[in-house]
Design a protein around this nucleic acid. Structure first.
Length: 473
RNA sequence: GGCCCCGUCGUCUAGUGGACCAGGACGCAGCCCUCUCAAGGCUGAGAUCGCGGGUUCGAAUCCCGCCGGGGCUACCA
């Protein structure tokens, strides 16, 4: 079989959301695995819906995920002439015809069809217009569109790689518009012309296109071109069970980046939306996905995006990162903190993170003193302020005299002191934790103290002790 | 309305006639570990495989009907 070539063909009407990203990913995985080519095509033939900057946004999203394309993206709006020539070809062979019906007439026609509970379809009034007459009127400047002349009978059968065999009665198909009166092609024409021109072997796209797939097949036939293989992907649903694509406010993938998700995790997450390797493996890198991907394993039923799973996956991927790599990624999110200073403390939080953004909160105390303490937090349940202050004093004195400052050197003296005070170690540790970090949830205390350094620890212990107001005593 | 697609724990899924009184994962509950929180380990609750009929010695798996959900039905993609 000849080379596999596939593509992702978004229309630039907004950002890249998870559903679109998944379509792109599946195309990418398949092309890579088959050592073929993955292309990007910009479908901007609808001038009314164009959004400025959307193409760049989509490209940024794909690049962030590591989905790269092999050729310069085809932009449809630059190919107007080519579509027009293709339409002429169809006109010549009778596979298409000019239609002069006005929007008003079409509206009336549909209203009547609806009233009679008939299928709403173009009634083919212009289909019987003699060719010469149609061309004369068009040449005279009369507004017209070009419609596909669908065969009046017969069956068109699609061998879909995901959905299986799907058959359509030609009689139920509409003579839809191929060329608009503004000279731009509709999706259908542009799709066939471009996929043929790009020698696309596999069309992997959203299943919203399934109902028009027979028309596309018929178009290829009319051109006498070899049609590509089709794979229609089921919808991705949001938590509200509404299709992601249509859901108001479907999130841009770049928002996941900003929220502290790893592209590796997002890729893994969307790969499993409607696909699985057929084993119990659930953490796969892009390379492994390329290796294991197969269109046959794509589920034909819609998948709901379960964001709790993304959180878990992200944690898993964070844990698998080399500490230096993690430090670098965290540094990007903590302006003013150099990577070198993050390097030693990042291992303390690596297995506690679910997103990159949580790191700055967890690590903040290494870089600045706590804002202040409520004695509430400092004083353990069942203790009073006076004895807490006394405990802090004794810790200070003890630590000051300590010669070593490794975690090992710190631990047993601290436990010993707790014993001496008659406090459970956990209580003393909690008081110290709050004194040193200003929070009750932190990385491991002793190691944190060790990394923080003797002087800063002593300062904070003293400040905490002093903060317990005499009135509390 | 018409055409088309889909239907296994809350969610993602394994499963393609016997090894399935349905396996894994997320989430949830409990226990263990433990200086907090996580991570990790163990245990548990959770699916009469949408429903009803067939076919078969035997069906989540094949057939038919029904129901439910969704998509498309534009000079949008």
């Amino acid at each position: 079989m000849s080379q596999v070539r596939d593509r992702y063909a978004p229309s630039p009407t907004g950002a890249l959301h998870l559903g679109g990203a998944r379509t792109a990913l599946f195309n990418y995985l398949f092309a890579r695995q088959q050592q073929g080519a993955f292309l990007l095509r910009i479908e901007d033939t609808d001038r009314a819906r164009l959004k400025e900057g959307s193409q760049a946004l989509i490209e940024d999203g794909l690049q962030w995920l590591g989905i790269t394309w092999d050729e310069i993206p085809l932009v449809q709006s630059t190919r107007k002439m080519i579509y027009q020539e293709a339409a002429e070809l169809l006109l010549g062979s009778g596979a298409a015809y000019r239609c002069f019906c006005t929007p008003e007439r079409l509206n009336e026609m549909r209203a009547e069809q609806r009233a009679r509970k008939e299928p709403e379809r173009y009634d083919r009034r212009c289909r019987s217009l003699p060719r010469q007459e149609a061309e004369r009127r068009a040449a005279g400047g009369e507004r017209n569109v070009i419609r596909q002349a669908i065969p009046l009978d017969g069956v068109t059968t699609l061998q879909d790689l995901v959905m299986g065999i799907v058959s359509f009665q030609n009689a139920t198909l509409d003579d839809h518009v191929l060329m608009k009166s503004d000279g731009f092609p509709t999706y259908h024409l542009a799709f066939a012309v471009d996929d043929h021109a790009s020698r696309i072997s596999h069309v992997i796209r959203g299943d919203g296109w399934l109902p028009s797939a027979p028309k596309h097949l018929l178009l290829f036939k009319a051109f006498n071109w070899e049609p590509p293989a089709f794979a229609h992907l089921p919808l991705v649903l949001g938590a509200d069970k509404k299709p992601l694509a249509k859901r108001h406010g479907a999130k841009d993938v770049l928002e996941y980046r900003d929220a502290g998700y790893l592209p590796e995790a997002v890729v893994n997450f969307i790969a499993f939306l409607g696909w699985s390797p057929g084993t119990t493996e659930d953490i796969l890198t892009m390379e492994q996905l390329v290796e294991k991907f197969s269109i046959e394993k794509i589920q034909p039923s819609p998948a709901m995006a379960n964001l709790e799973r993304l959180d878990w996956l992200n944690g898993q991927f964070i844990r698998r990162l080399a500490p230096a790599d993690l430090a670098r990624r965290i540094a990007e999110r903590m302006p003013g903190v150099p990577v070198e200073e993050l390097l030693p403390v990042v291992p303390l939080v690596q297995e506690r993170l679910r997103t990159l953004n949580e790191a700055s909160d967890m690590l903040a105390f290494f870089f600045k003193d706590p804002e202040g303490y409520g004695s509430q937090a400092l004083v353990p349940k069942g203790r009073d302020a006076a004895s807490t202050r006394e405990a802090l004093n004794q810790v200070g004195t003890m630590l000051e005299r300590l010669s070593g400052w490794s975690a090992e050197a710190l631990e047993s003296p601290l436990r010993g002191l707790a014993d001496q005070l008659g406090w459970p170690a956990r209580d003393l540790f909690m008081t110290l934790r709050v004194a040193i970090t200003g929070r009750t949830v932190t990385p491991p205390l002793i190691e944190s103290m060790s990394h923080l350094g003797k002087q800063r620890v002593l300062d904070r212990v003293k400040r905490a002790g002093d903060s317990i107001a005499p009135t509390d005593v």
